[in-house]
Design a protein around this nucleic acid. Sequence first.
DNA 1: CGAGCACTTGAGGCAATTCAATGATTGTGG
DNA 2: CCACAATCATTGAATTGCCTCAAGTGCTCG
Lengths: 241, 241
Amino acid sequence: MDMQRSDIHSSDIPIVCRACEARHGGACSALSPQQLGELSKHSSRRRLQAGTEVVGQGEEMATCANIMRGVVKLTRMMPDGRQQIVGLQFAPDFLGRPFAAESPHSAEAATDTEICTFPRHLLERMVTRAPELEHRLHQQVLKELDEARDWMLTLGRKNAQEKVASFLFLIATHYDPETVDGSAFDLPLSRADIADFLGLTIETVSRQFTKLRKENVIRIENNRHVTVPDIERLQQFAGID
Amino acid sequence: MDMQRSDIHSSDIPIVCRACEARHGGACSALSPQQLGELSKHSSRRRLQAGTEVVGQGEEMATCANIMRGVVKLTRMMPDGRQQIVGLQFAPDFLGRPFAAESPHSAEAATDTEICTFPRHLLERMVTRAPELEHRLHQQVLKELDEARDWMLTLGRKNAQEKVASFLFLIATHYDPETVDGSAFDLPLSRADIADFLGLTIETVSRQFTKLRKENVIRIENNRHVTVPDIERLQQFAGID
DNA sequence: CGAGCACTTGAGGCAATTCAATGATTGTGG
DNA sequence: CCACAATCATTGAATTGCCTCAAGTGCTCG
């Protein structure tokens, strides 16, 4: 299928886009070189330190973006401060909401992150002229919906151990999609973030990490670096079929 | 915006579609009379008794549908039988997943339901020719994603009382969108379904109903018929800003 | 009227939270 | 380079909210 993609000279591709991941798996892969050129004229790269808020819950959102590198967390908060992470976006995911003025949740860089932003209205105009682009965005939203619903099962029906194992499995498989036994990675989230993602407290998360470590399901170094000797064993602990 | 929709003679509209709700709020509103005609030739109405399964988790899904009347619940299940309702669809919502062979969850009529089904591949072909249709479906998926994420907050961070109140509020506002004080409605879900929706047990749901009743937040008759004297008070119990 | 089902209510147990203290790691200024 | 504070994570003890198990109530339908 990718073979079919027009093999135009790379010189037609805007310079800033040439090395860009999003041009392959991401939303921009639906665009022609001309469209890429138009978009890239108004796009700009931004580096975000871990913890930087991209947009707040209920705020006006004038730009969309592609994630080039890093992890962005989407958070929804209650008036009394309780909060829940409702989505984790990895490169080369699309970030934003065409045709909606307000963001339904806040978005914050979980790790150091690099994004490529462009005006929302520009994207909206391109969408009407490039159905393939809307198709692409549509597919990503469907993917996000499936993930959100998977997570609803985790939140509603799994116990603390299964939740933490599910989280580790998610990160292991999303960070390096070809994760195999013995894989290692750095957690993109702090214990507090993990708790907000799993609907638990920091203490419970910590206790479950310890348990999984003692059962040799994972190894942990420096709080963030995790090694999974047997990914299928982790999967079993996560309660996934 | 709806004013702009071409005011063609209603005689152009297929007979079966004329009285159909989905032609207004639903996916079909994006179609021209000709497209409607083509689709309606291969569509068929089905009445589903409460409890009828439309499609099972992981099953091949050859048809899509619009919900004409009733409520459909989307359920995801764990190998050991624990289950979670991951979505509730009301008329005139769209049901199904174009461009995906397998259903990521089971779909079951929660109440007596009427749907209008059509072959998935037909819809897929129309989507490529009618960008407005894809736009419409895209918008619905975005709505579902927002709802799923709202529910993640409920599942992860609310206590039993807030969960039950949130559910009642959801039903009150979705069943009769113009719900005002003193409104009454029949619950489309059994206590067991409600428990599966909220990540609770039947007993806990029941106890919270009793509590809310004793605090005069709701009145209950015949287990299913609920009256809400003060919708804002219910909303406060739900922990919504 | 009795069987079957859905729902309610009660008693006791347990998993996760809360509260509190300790340990580890990182960054800062002397 | 060390001392110190600050932040993040772990561990322990006590509490509690929800679950489990069990019994009871109230519909509906043959």
